[in-house]
Design a protein around this nucleic acid. Sequence first.
DNA 1: GCCAACGTTGGC
DNA 2: GCCAACGTTGGC
Length: 139
Amino acid sequence: MAHWLYKSEPDVWSYDQNAANGDAGTFWDGVRNPLANNHMKAMQLGERGFFYHSNVGKAVVGIVEVVKLWAPDPKDDSGRWGAVTIRSVAAFPRPVTLAEIKADPRLADMVLVKNSRLSVQPVTDVEFELICALGGVTP
DNA sequence: GCCAACGTTGGC
DNA sequence: GCCAACGTTGGC
């Protein structure tokens, strides 16, 4: 299964707020980037990804999981944009900071490093396992 | 607060 | 359909 990374500014929407929604999860709306939108369309139920806090914290803070496939955003008239619904699975005992990721040569090719502006990104299996280990959870 | 990187818009 | 100008994101 593929792995992903979702970015959010914690001032706007934090991992804790996401976790508070429980198993029902959160409709990840508001994404207005074609690439990010396509990534969400490609997602399968149960696929896991990271929740990343941008700007404040700048760290991977936990694991989330797709509980609903991509659906159109009712607030978007064009029908182009939509989102998956994700629920929180586990918070990292130890958040993995961007600085740590950049310092690790094994993670140098991450999209997070190479294209930091993309709000929904693919993560390779190797990258996923490495960051889980750094964060103190077993995937 | 600054600035680089990227996306989008709009004139032609 | 190209490309310059502009806006936004996000790290520093």
